[in-house]
Design a protein around this nucleic acid. Structure first.
Length: 294
DNA sequence: AGGATAGCCTGCGGGC
DNA sequence: TGCCCGCAGGCTATCC
C-alpha cells in the first residue's frame, strides 16, 4: 500500500500524538511481525518518545534512551492512533479489529496522570496500533537507533523526496536495467513504488522501458524534478488512497484523483488523448503513453 | 547483470 | 447467492 507520501503522512499525523509522550505498556498479539529481539528491548516500553523519522518507505520511532523501532508497512500495513483513557487496550478501544498485531499504550507524562487535558481538550492518552492484514510488513527493534540509521538505513538509496540530479546521475549511469526497475529499487532510490514510478516517468516524458544508462543529462534532470514534484504534491494531498490507505488519524489521502497514468491502462492520455499502454515490467503493472513518453 | 518466476498473505471485485 | 480467478500500494530468493 504505502509509498513515500503515504508513510510521510503517517509520520506527520502520528507526531502530535507521540512526541515527548511516554510508552506505558505494549501488547503483542502476533510476535512473528517483529524482527530483532523484542523482549530484550521491550518495544520502547517505559520510554519517552524523542522523534519520528522516515527514510524512503520506512518509519522509525526513537525514545530518549535511544531505543528505536523501525516500521515497514509493506502492502497493507497501517499505523494509527486511537484516542482513549482506559487502562487496557480493550477498555479504551472496544473490541480489537481484525489483523491488529501490536498495540502501544501512550500517556502524557511521567507519572501517568491520565486526565490532564491539553490545549486541544485531549488527554494525550491513547493507543498506537499496528495493523497489517497481509502481513508483508514488519516491525524491527533496535537497542540503539544509531544502528538502525547506520546499518539498515544505509542500505537504502537517497530519499526520493529530496533527490538531486547529482545523486541520481551516478545511480543510472552504471546500469543497463530499465529505468522503471531502477526507480523501484530501494537500494538505488528510497521511497518510490509502483504508483509514483509511473507518475514520475509520465511527468518527465520518459518511457519506463528506457535503459537507465542511456538517459541524457537533460532527461536525468527532468526525471529528478518529476520525482520530487510528484512526491511533494502527493505528500501535500495526504497521499494516495486506492482502497484502504489511512493516515494515523484514519483519514484517507486525496492524491489518487490526480493520477495521470497509474490505474488508467487503456484509457485516454490526459496530454495527447491517445490510448495508454499497460504492460508488466519489473514484475509490476506499468502504464505509460507511447506518444508522450520517449 | 538483470529478467522472469514464485512466494510470502488477505481481501475484493468481476464474471459466471 | 456463491465460487473461482485475477489482481493489489512491497520485497526476497532462485533460476536462467
Amino acid at each position: 500500500m504505502p509509498e513515500l507520501p503515504e508513510v510521510e503522512n503517517v509520520r506527520r499525523t502520528l507526531e502530535p500524538h507521540l512526541l515527548d509522550r511516554w510508552v506505558r505498556g505494549v501488547w503483542v498479539y502476533r510476535p512473528d511481525v517483529i524482527n530483532g529481539v523484542p523482549l530484550a528491548y521491550d518495544l520502547l516500553n517505559q520510554g519517552r518518545i524523542r522523534r519520528l523519522l522516515r527514510k524512503g518507505k520506512q518509519l522509525a520511532i526513537e525514545t530518549y534512551d535511544r531505543r528505536a523501532i523501525c516500521v515497514h508497512l509493506g502492502m497493507s500495513g497501517q499505523l494509527y492512533w486511537k484516542q482513549g483513557v482506559g487502562h487496557s487496550p480493550s477498555a479504551s478501544a472496544g473490541p480489537r479489529p481484525d489483523h491488529v498485531h501490536l498495540q502501544w499504550r501512550i500517556e502524557p507524562d511521567e507519572n501517568g496522570a491520565r486526565d490532564a487535558m491539553n490545549t486541544d481538550g485531549e488527554s494525550g492518552t491513547g493507543l498506537l496500533i499496528f495493523r497489517d492484514p497481509r502481513r508483508f510488513g514488519e516491525v524491527a527493534t533496535y537497542r540503539d537507533a544509531r544502528v538502525l540509521l547506520e546499518q539498515r538505513w544505509n542500505e537504502l538509496g537517497p530519499d526520493a523526496l529530496t533527490i538531486e540530479p547529482s545523486q541520481l546521475s551516478p545511480i543510472l549511469r552504471g546500469t543497463r536495467r530499465a529505468i522503471k526497475a531502477v526507480l523501484l529499487d530501494q537500494r538505488a532510490l528510497a521511497g518510490v513504488g509502483n504508483i509514483y514510478a509511473d507518475e514520475s516517468l509520465f511527468l518527465a516524458g520518459i518511457r519506463p522501458t528506457r535503459v537507465a544508462r542511456t538517459l541524457k543529462a537533460a532527461e536525468v534532470e527532468r526525471l529528478c524534478g518529476a520525482v520530487r514534484q510528484v512526491l511533494q504534491s502527493a505528500v501535500g494531498a495526504g497521499g494516495s488512497t486506492l482502497r484502504d490507505f489511512k493516515n494515523a488519524d484514519e483519514q484517507p489521502g486525496r492524491y489518487a484523483q490526480f493520477h495521470q497514468v497509474y490505474g488508467r491502462g487503456g484509457a485516454a492520455c490526459v496530454r495527447c488523448g491517445g490510448v495508454l499502454t499497460s504492460r508488466t515490467l519489473g514484475q509490476r503493472t506499468t502504464v505509460w503513453c507511447k506518444v508522450c513518453q520517449r
